[in-house]
Design a protein around this nucleic acid. Sequence first.
DNA 1: CTAAGATATGAATCGATATTCATATTTTGA
DNA 2: TCAAAATATGAATATCGATTCATATCTTAG
Lengths: 208, 208
Amino acid sequence: MTTRNLSRKEREKQRQRQDIIDAGLELFSEKGYHNVAMQEIAEKAEFAVGTIYNFFPTKADLYETIVRQKIDLFEQAFEKAIQTATDEIDQLRNYIRAKSETFRSNISFVRLMVAESRGVSFSIKGGLTREMRNRYYRFLERIACIFENGIRHKRFKPIASAFQLAAALDSTVNTFLLLWVEMPGIHPFPEDPDIILNIFFHSLLDTT
Amino acid sequence: MTTRNLSRKEREKQRQRQDIIDAGLELFSEKGYHNVAMQEIAEKAEFAVGTIYNFFPTKADLYETIVRQKIDLFEQAFEKAIQTATDEIDQLRNYIRAKSETFRSNISFVRLMVAESRGVSFSIKGGLTREMRNRYYRFLERIACIFENGIRHKRFKPIASAFQLAAALDSTVNTFLLLWVEMPGIHPFPEDPDIILNIFFHSLLDTT
DNA sequence: CTAAGATATGAATCGATATTCATATTTTGA
DNA sequence: TCAAAATATGAATATCGATTCATATCTTAG
Protein backbone atom coordinates (compact mmCIF):
# COMPACT_ATOMS: atom_id res chain seq x y z
CA MET A 1 0.00 0.00 0.00
CA THR A 2 2.83 2.37 0.80
CA THR A 3 4.51 1.81 -2.52
CA ARG A 4 1.22 2.05 -4.30
CA ASN A 5 0.45 5.24 -2.45
CA LEU A 6 3.81 6.66 -3.36
CA SER A 7 3.30 5.61 -6.92
CA ARG A 8 -0.04 7.36 -7.14
CA LYS A 9 1.55 10.43 -5.68
CA GLU A 10 4.43 10.19 -8.08
CA ARG A 11 2.07 9.95 -11.02
CA GLU A 12 0.11 12.92 -9.76
CA LYS A 13 3.32 14.91 -9.54
CA GLN A 14 4.25 13.97 -13.07
CA ARG A 15 0.86 15.03 -14.30
CA GLN A 16 1.21 18.41 -12.63
CA ARG A 17 4.68 18.80 -14.02
CA GLN A 18 3.42 18.02 -17.48
CA ASP A 19 0.56 20.50 -17.05
CA ILE A 20 3.11 23.21 -16.37
CA ILE A 21 5.14 22.15 -19.38
CA ASP A 22 2.06 22.22 -21.59
CA ALA A 23 0.99 25.63 -20.35
CA GLY A 24 4.51 26.93 -20.90
CA LEU A 25 4.72 25.52 -24.40
CA GLU A 26 1.47 27.07 -25.43
CA LEU A 27 2.35 30.49 -24.07
CA PHE A 28 5.95 30.52 -25.25
CA SER A 29 4.90 29.53 -28.73
CA GLU A 30 2.28 32.27 -28.86
CA LYS A 31 4.33 35.13 -27.50
CA GLY A 32 7.98 34.15 -27.31
CA TYR A 33 10.10 33.46 -24.27
CA HIS A 34 10.67 37.02 -23.15
CA ASN A 35 7.06 38.05 -23.52
CA VAL A 36 5.69 35.43 -21.16
CA ALA A 37 5.72 36.04 -17.42
CA MET A 38 5.93 33.19 -14.95
CA GLN A 39 2.72 34.61 -13.52
CA GLU A 40 0.92 33.82 -16.77
CA ILE A 41 2.24 30.31 -16.93
CA ALA A 42 1.11 29.81 -13.37
CA GLU A 43 -2.38 31.05 -14.15
CA LYS A 44 -2.69 28.93 -17.26
CA ALA A 45 -1.57 25.83 -15.38
CA GLU A 46 -3.80 26.77 -12.43
CA PHE A 47 -1.03 26.97 -9.89
CA ALA A 48 0.56 29.73 -7.86
CA VAL A 49 3.86 31.12 -9.10
CA GLY A 50 5.68 29.63 -6.17
CA THR A 51 4.47 26.16 -7.02
CA ILE A 52 6.08 26.29 -10.41
CA TYR A 53 9.37 26.89 -8.68
CA ASN A 54 8.89 23.62 -6.83
CA PHE A 55 9.12 21.89 -10.19
CA PHE A 56 11.57 24.05 -12.10
CA PRO A 57 14.36 26.09 -10.51
CA THR A 58 14.22 28.89 -13.08
CA LYS A 59 12.22 30.09 -16.05
CA ALA A 60 15.08 29.23 -18.38
CA ASP A 61 15.11 25.73 -16.96
CA LEU A 62 11.42 25.27 -17.65
CA TYR A 63 11.99 26.47 -21.18
CA GLU A 64 14.88 24.10 -21.75
CA THR A 65 12.85 21.21 -20.43
CA ILE A 66 10.06 21.98 -22.87
CA VAL A 67 12.41 22.17 -25.81
CA ARG A 68 14.34 19.03 -24.91
CA GLN A 69 11.19 17.02 -24.39
CA LYS A 70 9.85 17.87 -27.81
CA ILE A 71 13.15 17.49 -29.60
CA ASP A 72 13.51 14.03 -28.11
CA LEU A 73 10.06 13.18 -29.41
CA PHE A 74 10.93 14.43 -32.88
CA GLU A 75 14.23 12.58 -33.04
CA GLN A 76 12.65 9.34 -31.94
CA ALA A 77 9.92 9.66 -34.55
CA PHE A 78 12.41 10.28 -37.34
CA GLU A 79 14.72 7.48 -36.32
CA LYS A 80 11.85 5.04 -36.14
CA ALA A 81 10.61 6.14 -39.55
CA ILE A 82 13.99 5.63 -41.13
CA GLN A 83 14.42 2.21 -39.60
CA THR A 84 11.00 1.08 -40.85
CA ALA A 85 12.20 0.97 -44.43
CA THR A 86 14.61 -1.06 -46.43
CA ASP A 87 15.74 0.76 -49.53
CA GLU A 88 16.93 4.34 -49.51
CA ILE A 89 14.02 5.79 -51.42
CA ASP A 90 11.57 4.39 -48.92
CA GLN A 91 13.68 5.68 -46.08
CA LEU A 92 13.44 9.20 -47.49
CA ARG A 93 9.71 8.80 -48.03
CA ASN A 94 9.21 7.64 -44.48
CA TYR A 95 11.30 10.44 -43.06
CA ILE A 96 9.25 13.03 -44.92
CA ARG A 97 6.03 11.43 -43.80
CA ALA A 98 7.21 11.22 -40.19
CA LYS A 99 8.36 14.80 -40.22
CA SER A 100 5.07 15.98 -41.61
CA GLU A 101 3.06 14.01 -39.07
CA THR A 102 5.16 15.13 -36.15
CA PHE A 103 4.91 18.74 -37.28
CA ARG A 104 1.18 18.52 -37.72
CA SER A 105 0.59 17.18 -34.24
CA ASN A 106 2.99 19.60 -32.57
CA ILE A 107 2.23 22.86 -34.27
CA SER A 108 2.74 25.00 -31.22
CA PHE A 109 6.21 23.59 -30.75
CA VAL A 110 6.98 24.20 -34.39
CA ARG A 111 5.86 27.77 -33.94
CA LEU A 112 8.17 28.04 -30.96
CA MET A 113 11.10 26.81 -33.00
CA VAL A 114 10.29 29.05 -35.91
CA ALA A 115 9.94 32.02 -33.64
CA GLU A 116 13.20 31.77 -31.83
CA SER A 117 15.04 28.86 -33.33
CA ARG A 118 18.51 29.48 -32.07
CA GLY A 119 17.92 32.88 -30.65
CA VAL A 120 17.75 34.89 -27.56
CA SER A 121 16.26 32.52 -25.13
CA PHE A 122 18.77 29.83 -25.87
CA SER A 123 21.64 32.17 -25.59
CA ILE A 124 20.71 32.90 -21.99
CA LYS A 125 23.06 30.12 -21.36
CA GLY A 126 25.23 29.28 -24.31
CA GLY A 127 24.73 25.60 -23.67
CA LEU A 128 21.42 24.74 -25.21
CA THR A 129 22.25 26.54 -28.43
CA ARG A 130 25.28 24.40 -29.01
CA GLU A 131 23.47 21.25 -28.00
CA MET A 132 20.63 21.93 -30.43
CA ARG A 133 22.99 22.73 -33.24
CA ASN A 134 24.93 19.56 -32.67
CA ARG A 135 21.80 17.51 -32.50
CA TYR A 136 20.66 19.00 -35.79
CA TYR A 137 23.97 18.26 -37.46
CA ARG A 138 23.87 14.72 -36.20
CA PHE A 139 20.41 14.43 -37.69
CA LEU A 140 21.59 15.80 -41.02
CA GLU A 141 24.43 13.29 -40.95
CA ARG A 142 21.86 10.59 -40.42
CA ILE A 143 20.00 11.66 -43.55
CA ALA A 144 23.28 12.02 -45.37
CA CYS A 145 23.96 8.35 -44.64
CA ILE A 146 20.86 7.45 -46.60
CA PHE A 147 22.14 9.35 -49.61
CA GLU A 148 25.58 7.84 -49.08
CA ASN A 149 24.10 4.36 -49.22
CA GLY A 150 21.92 5.24 -52.16
CA ILE A 151 24.94 6.42 -54.09
CA ARG A 152 26.92 3.33 -53.13
CA HIS A 153 24.09 1.10 -54.22
CA LYS A 154 23.95 2.96 -57.54
CA ARG A 155 20.40 4.00 -56.87
CA PHE A 156 21.41 7.67 -56.65
CA LYS A 157 23.74 9.68 -58.82
CA PRO A 158 26.37 11.76 -56.98
CA ILE A 159 25.03 15.12 -58.16
CA ALA A 160 26.25 16.66 -54.90
CA SER A 161 27.86 15.50 -51.68
CA ALA A 162 25.67 13.31 -49.48
CA PHE A 163 25.65 15.98 -46.80
CA GLN A 164 24.66 18.67 -49.24
CA LEU A 165 21.83 16.52 -50.51
CA ALA A 166 20.66 15.94 -46.96
CA ALA A 167 20.76 19.65 -46.20
CA ALA A 168 18.91 20.48 -49.39
CA LEU A 169 16.18 17.92 -48.84
CA ASP A 170 15.65 18.70 -45.19
CA SER A 171 15.54 22.45 -45.72
CA THR A 172 13.05 21.99 -48.53
CA VAL A 173 10.82 19.86 -46.35
CA ASN A 174 11.10 22.43 -43.58
CA THR A 175 10.17 25.26 -45.86
CA PHE A 176 7.15 23.42 -47.21
CA LEU A 177 6.04 22.71 -43.67
CA LEU A 178 6.51 26.31 -42.62
CA LEU A 179 4.57 27.55 -45.60
CA TRP A 180 1.82 25.17 -44.62
CA VAL A 181 1.88 26.29 -40.98
CA GLU A 182 1.62 29.93 -41.97
CA MET A 183 -0.83 29.65 -44.82
CA PRO A 184 -2.48 26.24 -44.75
CA GLY A 185 -5.05 27.30 -47.33
CA ILE A 186 -2.68 28.61 -49.95
CA HIS A 187 0.21 26.22 -49.41
CA PRO A 188 -1.11 22.85 -48.24
CA PHE A 189 1.56 20.39 -47.33
CA PRO A 190 1.71 17.71 -50.04
CA GLU A 191 0.14 14.51 -48.77
CA ASP A 192 2.37 12.49 -51.04
CA PRO A 193 6.03 12.72 -50.05
CA ASP A 194 6.97 12.00 -53.65
CA ILE A 195 5.87 15.49 -54.63
CA ILE A 196 8.83 16.79 -52.69
CA LEU A 197 11.14 13.96 -53.63
CA ASN A 198 10.43 14.43 -57.32
CA ILE A 199 12.10 17.81 -57.17
CA PHE A 200 15.27 15.93 -56.44
CA PHE A 201 14.59 12.73 -58.33
CA HIS A 202 13.77 14.33 -61.65
CA SER A 203 15.85 16.68 -63.70
CA LEU A 204 14.54 20.20 -63.88
CA LEU A 205 16.31 20.79 -67.19
CA ASP A 206 14.29 20.05 -70.26
CA THR A 207 16.77 18.59 -72.70
CA THR A 208 14.33 17.60 -75.39
CA MET B 1 27.26 79.06 -47.14
CA THR B 2 24.13 78.61 -45.06
CA THR B 3 22.86 75.78 -47.21
CA ARG B 4 26.29 74.27 -47.31
CA ASN B 5 26.58 74.61 -43.58
CA LEU B 6 23.22 73.01 -43.10
CA SER B 7 24.21 70.31 -45.49
CA ARG B 8 27.41 69.62 -43.62
CA LYS B 9 25.40 69.47 -40.44
CA GLU B 10 22.85 67.21 -42.03
CA ARG B 11 25.58 64.88 -43.22
CA GLU B 12 27.13 64.85 -39.79
CA LYS B 13 23.78 63.95 -38.29
CA GLN B 14 23.35 61.14 -40.76
CA ARG B 15 26.80 59.84 -39.92
CA GLN B 16 25.98 59.85 -36.22
CA ARG B 17 22.68 58.13 -36.88
CA GLN B 18 24.43 55.49 -38.91
CA ASP B 19 27.03 55.02 -36.16
CA ILE B 20 24.24 54.25 -33.74
CA ILE B 21 22.68 51.85 -36.21
CA ASP B 22 26.00 50.10 -36.74
CA ALA B 23 26.66 49.80 -33.02
CA GLY B 24 23.16 48.46 -32.51
CA LEU B 25 23.47 45.93 -35.29
CA GLU B 26 26.73 44.58 -33.97
CA LEU B 27 25.43 44.23 -30.41
CA PHE B 28 22.01 42.87 -31.33
CA SER B 29 23.57 40.28 -33.58
CA GLU B 30 25.98 39.20 -30.87
CA LYS B 31 23.58 38.98 -27.97
CA GLY B 32 20.02 39.28 -29.21
CA TYR B 33 17.59 42.14 -28.80
CA HIS B 34 16.61 41.52 -25.20
CA ASN B 35 20.14 41.03 -23.99
CA VAL B 36 21.41 44.40 -25.15
CA ALA B 37 20.86 47.49 -23.02
CA MET B 38 20.57 50.93 -24.54
CA GLN B 39 23.47 51.84 -22.27
CA GLU B 40 25.71 49.42 -24.15
CA ILE B 41 24.68 50.72 -27.54
CA ALA B 42 25.38 54.22 -26.31
CA GLU B 43 28.84 53.25 -25.13
CA LYS B 44 29.69 51.42 -28.31
CA ALA B 45 28.55 54.37 -30.42
CA GLU B 46 30.34 56.77 -28.05
CA PHE B 47 27.25 58.74 -27.12
CA ALA B 48 25.25 59.22 -23.95
CA VAL B 49 22.03 57.24 -23.64
CA GLY B 50 19.97 60.36 -23.93
CA THR B 51 21.53 61.24 -27.26
CA ILE B 52 20.33 58.01 -28.79
CA TYR B 53 16.81 59.03 -27.91
CA ASN B 54 17.32 62.17 -29.98
CA PHE B 55 17.61 59.88 -33.00
CA PHE B 56 15.27 57.03 -32.18
CA PRO B 57 12.16 57.35 -30.01
CA THR B 58 12.44 53.82 -28.58
CA LYS B 59 14.69 50.79 -28.55
CA ALA B 60 12.19 48.85 -30.65
CA ASP B 61 12.24 51.65 -33.17
CA LEU B 62 16.02 51.54 -33.44
CA TYR B 63 15.81 47.81 -33.96
CA GLU B 64 13.20 48.08 -36.66
CA THR B 65 15.24 50.71 -38.44
CA ILE B 66 18.25 48.41 -38.45
CA VAL B 67 16.28 45.50 -39.82
CA ARG B 68 14.48 47.51 -42.49
CA GLN B 69 17.69 49.12 -43.68
CA LYS B 70 19.37 45.79 -44.22
CA ILE B 71 16.37 44.09 -45.72
CA ASP B 72 16.07 46.90 -48.23
CA LEU B 73 19.70 46.42 -49.13
CA PHE B 74 19.20 42.69 -49.61
CA GLU B 75 16.11 43.10 -51.74
CA GLN B 76 17.76 45.65 -53.97
CA ALA B 77 20.78 43.42 -54.46
CA PHE B 78 18.62 40.45 -55.43
CA GLU B 79 16.43 42.41 -57.77
CA LYS B 80 19.42 43.91 -59.52
CA ALA B 81 21.01 40.49 -59.86
CA ILE B 82 17.92 39.03 -61.46
CA GLN B 83 17.58 41.91 -63.87
CA THR B 84 21.20 41.58 -64.97
CA ALA B 85 20.50 38.34 -66.81
CA THR B 86 18.53 37.29 -69.80
CA ASP B 87 17.69 33.62 -69.68
CA GLU B 88 16.22 31.92 -66.64
CA ILE B 89 19.23 29.81 -65.80
CA ASP B 90 21.44 32.86 -65.64
CA GLN B 91 18.88 34.64 -63.51
CA LEU B 92 19.02 31.82 -60.98
CA ARG B 93 22.80 31.81 -61.07
CA ASN B 94 22.93 35.54 -60.48
CA TYR B 95 20.46 35.38 -57.65
CA ILE B 96 22.51 32.72 -55.90
CA ARG B 97 25.68 34.71 -56.41
CA ALA B 98 24.06 37.91 -55.17
CA LYS B 99 22.64 36.19 -52.14
CA SER B 100 25.98 34.67 -51.26
CA GLU B 101 27.81 37.99 -51.67
CA THR B 102 25.26 39.92 -49.68
CA PHE B 103 25.38 37.33 -46.91
CA ARG B 104 29.14 37.33 -46.82
CA SER B 105 29.40 41.08 -46.44
CA ASN B 106 26.61 41.31 -43.86
CA ILE B 107 27.34 38.39 -41.60
CA SER B 108 26.31 40.13 -38.41
CA PHE B 109 22.93 40.93 -39.88
CA VAL B 110 22.54 37.36 -41.04
CA ARG B 111 23.34 36.23 -37.53
CA LEU B 112 20.70 38.57 -36.25
CA MET B 113 18.11 37.13 -38.60
CA VAL B 114 19.08 33.58 -37.81
CA ALA B 115 18.95 34.28 -34.14
CA GLU B 116 15.53 35.81 -33.93
CA SER B 117 14.06 35.60 -37.35
CA ARG B 118 10.41 36.16 -36.64
CA GLY B 119 10.62 35.91 -32.91
CA VAL B 120 10.48 37.89 -29.79
CA SER B 121 11.82 41.17 -30.84
CA PHE B 122 9.51 41.47 -33.79
CA SER B 123 6.49 40.60 -31.79
CA ILE B 124 7.01 43.68 -29.64
CA LYS B 125 4.72 45.23 -32.12
CA GLY B 126 2.91 42.76 -34.29
CA GLY B 127 3.63 44.86 -37.33
CA LEU B 128 7.13 44.00 -38.38
CA THR B 129 6.47 40.28 -38.34
CA ARG B 130 3.73 40.50 -40.88
CA GLU B 131 5.66 42.93 -43.00
CA MET B 132 8.71 40.67 -43.09
CA ARG B 133 6.65 37.65 -43.92
CA ASN B 134 4.91 39.42 -46.74
CA ARG B 135 8.16 40.72 -48.10
CA TYR B 136 9.58 37.23 -48.07
CA TYR B 137 6.58 35.81 -49.90
CA ARG B 138 6.80 38.53 -52.48
CA PHE B 139 10.43 37.61 -52.93
CA LEU B 140 9.59 33.94 -53.35
CA GLU B 141 6.97 34.90 -55.91
CA ARG B 142 9.68 36.79 -57.73
CA ILE B 143 11.84 33.67 -57.92
CA ALA B 144 8.78 31.62 -58.83
CA CYS B 145 8.33 33.87 -61.87
CA ILE B 146 11.71 32.79 -63.11
CA PHE B 147 10.69 29.15 -62.91
CA GLU B 148 7.35 30.03 -64.46
CA ASN B 149 9.10 31.58 -67.44
CA GLY B 150 11.58 28.75 -67.67
CA ILE B 151 8.75 26.27 -67.84
CA ARG B 152 6.90 28.34 -70.43
CA HIS B 153 10.03 28.58 -72.54
CA LYS B 154 10.44 24.82 -72.29
CA ARG B 155 13.78 25.25 -70.62
CA PHE B 156 12.47 23.70 -67.39
CA LYS B 157 10.28 20.69 -66.87
CA PRO B 158 7.28 21.17 -64.56
CA ILE B 159 8.49 18.71 -61.92
CA ALA B 160 6.73 20.83 -59.27
CA SER B 161 4.81 24.09 -59.11
CA ALA B 162 6.87 27.19 -59.79
CA PHE B 163 6.32 28.40 -56.25
CA GLN B 164 7.41 25.08 -54.79
CA LEU B 165 10.54 25.15 -56.89
CA ALA B 166 11.28 28.66 -55.70
CA ALA B 167 10.77 27.66 -52.07
CA ALA B 168 12.96 24.59 -52.50
CA LEU B 169 15.79 26.47 -54.18
CA ASP B 170 15.77 29.41 -51.80
CA SER B 171 15.65 27.26 -48.70
CA THR B 172 18.51 25.18 -50.01
CA VAL B 173 20.61 28.26 -50.65
CA ASN B 174 19.75 29.56 -47.18
CA THR B 175 20.75 26.31 -45.54
CA PHE B 176 24.05 26.20 -47.36
CA LEU B 177 24.74 29.76 -46.30
CA LEU B 178 23.85 29.05 -42.70
CA LEU B 179 26.06 25.99 -42.64
CA TRP B 180 28.83 28.14 -43.98
CA VAL B 181 28.21 30.89 -41.39
CA GLU B 182 28.29 28.40 -38.55
CA MET B 183 31.11 26.17 -39.73
CA PRO B 184 33.01 27.89 -42.52
CA GLY B 185 35.80 25.35 -42.36
CA ILE B 186 33.69 22.23 -42.65
CA HIS B 187 30.96 23.56 -44.93
CA PRO B 188 32.39 26.21 -47.23
CA PHE B 189 29.84 27.91 -49.40
CA PRO B 190 30.25 26.67 -52.97
CA GLU B 191 31.92 29.38 -55.06
CA ASP B 192 30.16 28.10 -58.14
CA PRO B 193 26.38 28.58 -58.00
CA ASP B 194 26.00 25.61 -60.32
CA ILE B 195 26.93 23.27 -57.51
CA ILE B 196 23.64 24.16 -55.89
CA LEU B 197 21.70 24.42 -59.12
CA ASN B 198 22.86 20.98 -60.23
CA ILE B 199 20.93 19.46 -57.38
CA PHE B 200 17.83 20.68 -59.15
CA PHE B 201 19.03 20.50 -62.72
CA HIS B 202 20.15 16.90 -62.63
CA SER B 203 18.16 13.85 -61.72
CA LEU B 204 19.19 12.20 -58.50
CA LEU B 205 17.82 8.88 -59.65
CA ASP B 206 20.27 6.63 -61.39
CA THR B 207 18.23 4.91 -64.07
CA THR B 208 21.09 3.16 -65.82
C1' DC C 1 -8.25 12.91 15.92
C1' DT C 2 -3.78 15.24 15.97
C1' DA C 3 0.76 16.81 15.24
C1' DA C 4 4.74 16.62 12.21
C1' DG C 5 5.93 16.92 7.69
C1' DA C 6 5.01 18.05 3.05
C1' DT C 7 3.22 21.10 -0.22
C1' DA C 8 0.99 25.26 -2.15
C1' DT C 9 0.38 30.14 -1.98
C1' DG C 10 1.13 34.91 -3.56
C1' DA C 11 2.64 39.31 -1.52
C1' DA C 12 7.05 41.36 -1.05
C1' DT C 13 11.79 41.72 -2.65
C1' DC C 14 15.28 42.78 -5.79
C1' DG C 15 17.63 43.59 -9.95
C1' DA C 16 17.54 45.13 -14.47
C1' DT C 17 16.93 48.53 -17.85
C1' DA C 18 13.99 51.62 -20.91
C1' DT C 19 13.00 56.24 -20.77
C1' DT C 20 12.96 61.05 -19.02
C1' DC C 21 14.55 65.54 -18.00
C1' DA C 22 17.13 69.06 -15.43
C1' DT C 23 21.59 70.52 -16.38
C1' DA C 24 25.92 71.20 -18.98
C1' DT C 25 28.02 71.95 -23.29
C1' DT C 26 28.37 73.39 -27.93
C1' DT C 27 26.96 75.96 -31.92
C1' DT C 28 25.06 79.80 -34.24
C1' DG C 29 24.30 84.37 -35.66
C1' DA C 30 24.94 89.17 -34.50
C1' DT D 1 32.84 88.36 -27.91
C1' DC D 2 28.28 87.08 -26.33
C1' DA D 3 23.65 85.20 -25.52
C1' DA D 4 20.05 82.50 -27.49
C1' DA D 5 19.18 78.15 -29.48
C1' DA D 6 20.35 73.65 -30.22
C1' DT D 7 22.29 69.60 -28.69
C1' DA D 8 24.44 66.25 -25.52
C1' DT D 9 24.68 64.32 -21.02
C1' DG D 10 23.83 60.79 -17.50
C1' DA D 11 21.74 60.57 -12.89
C1' DA D 12 17.18 59.76 -11.42
C1' DT D 13 12.68 57.69 -12.32
C1' DA D 14 9.43 54.22 -13.28
C1' DT D 15 8.13 49.78 -14.68
C1' DC D 16 8.38 45.15 -15.20
C1' DG D 17 8.92 40.57 -13.92
C1' DA D 18 11.91 36.64 -11.94
C1' DT D 19 12.59 34.76 -7.66
C1' DT D 20 12.00 34.22 -2.59
C1' DC D 21 9.96 33.03 1.68
C1' DA D 22 6.85 33.58 5.60
C1' DT D 23 2.43 31.76 5.97
C1' DA D 24 -1.60 28.82 5.00
C1' DT D 25 -3.27 24.44 3.62
C1' DC D 26 -3.19 19.72 3.04
C1' DT D 27 -1.35 14.73 3.96
C1' DT D 28 0.34 11.20 6.55
C1' DA D 29 1.08 8.19 10.23
C1' DG D 30 0.46 7.12 14.90
